[in-house]
Design a protein around this nucleic acid. Structure first.
Lengths: 197, 197
DNA sequence: CGCGCGATTGAGTAATTTCAAATCTAGTGG
DNA sequence: CCACTAGATTTGAAATTACTCAATCGCGCG
């Protein structure tokens, strides 16, 4: 695993934002100053259920892969989201309620992030209309993805959902164990195994 | 069914927005000028799958009740959202892709709406930072609700999902047939019937 | 080789669906 | 007031789907 330099990470973030809103050098400098870099190893936690500090609230993934999940009383993991490079990942629940985290976020691969606290993100949105626009557009994309997922859970059986997952995220499926995909799709790993053949 | 006057409808919208961002009279006047009122009867469609016009893209429900749903090939309805008074309802998919509508939206009760076109909404967001903020916050709430719903589909069995629905939306459940609730929860109406007893 | 981990397979069980029939309920007209 | 109808709900029974638990397989690695 090769790590990026700070300059490289900054450039990746800038390009990502500028797909939606253009920024001057000065503006981007200010934006960037609100972020911190983080490097996490495989299996390390970004957020654990019950955490009360939101210093690393919203996270842009430069490299690596994370999972957002909830553990039910019987110990089963239910995956809400995978977050590969170029995605944002957060405990979105904690943001509005600003109580303790209700989900876990951990690394499936060693990962590099640019993290921003909840307060800093809101400050940026206040200060730069452009950034409020950027975050709204991003959120809109996430909303649509979730809506599609809900529809596929209402609509499709396990096999169809699996095929849809493979075609939606072809690169991702190779980096995930079938067990992980199963707990994203909402089926047992045994059932998924019987489907693939 | 008693209809509201235009002034009453305006006030409801203003109060709704001002829960998040304060507005001057002048600002609200401009905002309001981007909306149109609509009255729809029970069973009438706001959006039908395949519609290409987005003149009534985003809709604030003053009174009544609507459902957003998708019909699968075998004719089954799958409900993505119910929209009672004080909620927003849109074919969110159509907004980003701006292609034809992929869902149906129809009235379960006679309804009064304040509708805004996609273009007008984006114009408002451009013109007033406050409104971009407002819509981001609203979207965030919707995102969280969807995330909770996904989790409950991964997490809970039919009975638990039903009980959660009843406790989350106590007022709504009385206005909905069990068939409708079933197709929101993703179970057959027969199964839901067996659970309630 | 032998260990560990993920994936697969088998068998029995539980939950849900499907299709059909019966019941209930609200509204209508005689 | 009563009969009648349409729609929604409930119930029954068989079929399907997915789950659980246990055993086995396959593979990379020390």
């Amino acid at each position: 695993m090769i790590f990026c330099s700070f300059v490289t990470m900054s450039n990746i973030l800038r390009q990502h934002i500028e797909k939606i809103v253009p920024l001057t050098d000065e503006e981007f400098g200010i934006v960037l100053s609100h972020f911190k870099t983080r490097k996490l190893k495989k299996h390390q936690f970004l957020v654990q259920e019950g955490d009360t500090a939101h210093a690393h609230f919203d996270n842009f993934v430069i490299s690596g892969l994370l999972k957002v999940y909830h553990t039910s009383d019987d110990g089963q993991e239910h995956i809400l989201q995978f977050a590969p490079q170029d995605w944002w990942v957060a405990d979105y629940q904690a943001c509005s309620v600003s109580g303790p985290a209700v989900v876990n976020i951990s690394c499936l691969e060693a990962s590099e992030l640019l993290s921003i606290s909840f307060e800093n993100r809101e400050r940026l949105c206040d200060q730069f209309h452009k950034l409020e626009h950027f975050f709204r557009k991003k959120l809109n994309g996430g909303f649509l993805a979730q809506q599609r997922r809900i529809l596929s859970m209402l609509n499709k059986n396990a096999k169809e959902r699996y095929e849809q997952f493979l075609s939606l995220y072809p690169g991702l499926s190779q980096r995930l164990s079938k067990t992980l995909i199963a707990s994203y799709l909402g089926v047992s790993r045994e059932t998924l195994s019987r489907l693939s053949g």
